[in-house]
């Protein structure tokens, strides 16, 4: 691994990230992407964040939680409460609210993770499913969050720029986490828990940590959602949403961040693109899922990751940075 080349890749990635942002906003300003479609890109952003964070537990840790929307709910309500009751104004208040939402979700990740991760497989799936429903149930009955009538009047502060920043940070941190000794520890648990433990990996710690980090980013996405939509209903964060996120992860490929990004974006935009087919669009959507699962059971990307170094690497160099 060459230091200069590594620096080049990081610089190039940064340039591409910034460049993509300016191209996108430029296209919107020039009217090539209409206001309606531009507005649709915001949910795409936080759904990618949700999918990528769930992929951390699903694809890299190898556990199957079904309550991801629960963490999103915790983040959404916490950040909504923060913008309402905390004495911070404007953008600063918004970012603080987002951070608080994410941290609260991460704390819930630990609380749920500790007991839940003693189990694995279907048992873990059921227990996290239960957690998601409990969150929904509590929110339905809490008075100060509006209960079933909904939490109304959240300032709509989420714009494309904030989502883009959060998304880039999410992708960057999850990528750097995975490609580090901590990421290797997480992957070793997926590959063989007993062997990981006998290599000195504290599996309970890493499982809980991963769960909590995934919850953190789900909470961040929840905060963005709250300040995008402006009103929160507990039923939004039910089982359906958890499954929707899971479908994105499975379709993109468990263990591929690139896959999650592509599939989350596609699945969010697909129903819009299929608008012309009206009643049949959900049928087409479902058929597409079935076809992909039959022909690519490991998901679109499998475990493949897009890397700049793969494009530029000299022939025969397999030690991708």
């Amino acid at each position: 691994m060459n230091t200069k080349r590594t620096a080049f890749y990081y610089l190039l990635a940064a340039l591409l990230t910034v460049g993509f942002y300016f191209v996108l906003t430029g296209l919107i300003r020039a009217g090539v992407i209409g206001k309606y479609h531009a507005d649709m890109l915001i949910p795409v952003g936080f759904y990618i964040m949700l999918a990528v964070s769930l992929n951390l537990t699903c694809g890299f840790l190898g556990q199957l939680p079904l309550g991801h929307a629960g963490f999103m709910a915790v983040g959404a309500y916490t950040s909504a409460l923060a913008t309402r009751y905390l004495p911070f104004e404007g953008a600063l208040g918004f970012w603080i609210a987002l951070l608080l939402g994410a941290l609260m979700a991460a704390a819930f990740g630990v609380v749920v993770g500790l007991p839940a991760l003693r189990l694995s497989g279907d048992y873990l799936a059921i227990i996290t499913l239960g957690f998601g429903e409990i969150i929904k149930g509590i929110l339905l009955n809490l008075n100060f969050t509006g209960g079933a009538r909904g939490f109304k009047g959240i300032p709509k502060q989420t714009d494309l720029t904030t989502v883009y920043i959060c998304l880039v940070l999410t992708l960057f941190f999850i990528r750097t986490l995975i490609n580090s000794r901590f990421g290797r520890a997480i992957i070793s648990i997926r590959e063989n828990e007993i062997a990981a433990e006998s290599c000195g990996i504290h599996t309970t710690f890493y499982k809980t940590m991963t769960f909590s980090i995934a919850a953190f980013f789900a909470g961040l996405a929840g905060g963005l959602y709250a300040h995008y939509i402006g009103v929160l209903y507990p039923t939004t964060f039910g089982f359906d949403t958890s499954i929707e996120i899971l479908v994105m992860v499975v379709l993109g490929g468990m263990g591929s961040i690139t896959g999650s990004v592509i599939s989350a974006a596609t699945l969010r935009l697909l129903p819009e693109m299929l608008r012309a087919f009206l009643d049949y669009r959900m049928v087409i959507y479902s058929l597409l899922l079935i076809v992909v699962m039959i022909f690519r059971p490991t998901g679109l990307m499998g475990r493949y990751e897009f890397r700049l170094s793969k494009i530029f690497a000299p022939k025969g160099d397999k030690s991708h940075v």
């Binding site: 992957i187 590959e191 063989n192 007993i194 062997a195 990981a196």
Partner: peptide, 10 residues
């Protein structure tokens, strides 16, 4: 281990 336990996919 008697029945090899490697991290096979990495």
């Amino acid at each position: 281990f008697q029945n090899i336990r490697l991290f096979k996919d990495i």
